[in-house]
Design a binder for these strands. Structure first.
Lengths: 188, 188
DNA sequence: GAGCGGCTTGAATGATCGTTCAATCAGGCA
DNA sequence: TGCCTGATTGAACGATCATTCAAGCCGCTC
């Protein structure tokens, strides 16, 4: 629900009703609403691989193909919910990064883990990318494009901006691969 | 304040105190808090050119240079506020796009106007971009990269992710310009 | 079966939320 | 001067916010 409608917009009473739990029980395990959010973000941190990255790996064997399989996974999520849900982390990042240090830290960690996963794929793309490519920055740019694309699609209420963003990212990768093969053809 | 800390996190009482206004006065002009937000977004819509795009034009004469001057402008805003403020629209886009149709519409309009401005610059770049380039999609991708970069920088509490994203976008433009000049050199 | 501890109950708390409205004010016009 | 209208005042409203806690429950061991 944090993910769906935001942290402040989600009341504790609603959470309790939906979970079929009494307030005292929740507060027995979580000292505050913020601690509950931290628990959610910790769950995302622990389940990034089994729930997100591994499924993308099963969709494609090709390392760069996996990057776009990952994008397609998020697209599917948006499609099923009519552009109301995008990235569980991104929504909270803008709402809570200031004034909630513990939360910001976990959000950042989630982002860094995501980037590290993509970076791993890019590494195994080997010489298909130009020599000396900054793989961290490129993997980070994949996240940038995804989050930006999701934001625009939610604002538009339409998947088109997301699809366009993915297409542009693909064009960028195509140009990088071209440049790599050109450099390979004439190494000096 | 909506922009700084979000819509739900900003109480009407705080707005009134900060503005030195009584509740009755505000409700005389705005029927609700949401109407006030709509007013803010309408102000952004009307002041996008004088406050944002024109200043970027004054920073650079080169059309593609203007794109990156615009990015630098947003960077400056983040730098001055310690990564707490990014794009006034983006924050609200993720918080309110669902369940607030009138707000979503205005956010989308702001985005479209922004993209149209960038698209105008790209048009005047002429044959520096490959023939047949989808300028709308490319201008939209600039917004995607900016919003995504801002989100990551706010999550990290550091400008580095934004800078990296801009650098990647620059690399993309460089490759496009290369491709354009290559196509020009051997048109057939 | 007495006693203990982890868990659950749910009404109640004070604070804050967005909003209302009768009363008052100030300026322009007749 | 008297009147009208639009703007302003600010106390008060009910709803909802996150949170508390005394009391009770259940399953365990001794």
């Amino acid at each position: 629900m944090f993910y769906e409608q935001g942290y402040h917009a989600t009341g504790v009473a609603t959470i309790l009703r939906e979970a079929g739990v009494n307030s005292g029980t929740m507060y027995h395990f979580f000292p505050s609403k913020e601690a509950l959010l931290v628990g959610v973000l910790a769950w995302y941190r622990d389940n990034l691989w089994p729930e997100v990255l591994t499924p993308a790996e099963h969709q494609a064997a090709d390392p760069i193909g996996r990057v776009f399989a990952l994008m397609a996974l998020y697209r599917l999520g948006m499609e099923m919910t009519g552009c109301t849900m995008g990235c569980p982390i991104g929504n909270l990042a803008l709402e809570l990064s200031d004034n909630h240090p513990a939360v910001r830290e976990l959000i950042d960690l989630n982002f860094r883990n995501w980037i590290a996963g993509v970076r791993g794929w890019l590494e195994s793309a080997g010489d298909r990318l130009p020599p000396g490519t900054d793989l961290d920055a490129l993997a980070g740019f994949v996240l940038t494009a995804m989050e930006g694309g999701i934001m625009r699609s939610r604002a538009a209420g339409d998947l088109a901006p997301f699809d366009e963003s993915v297409a542009q990212l693909r064009a960028y990768f195509d140009l990088l691969e071209q440049a790599a093969s050109a450099a390979k053809g004439s190494p000096r």
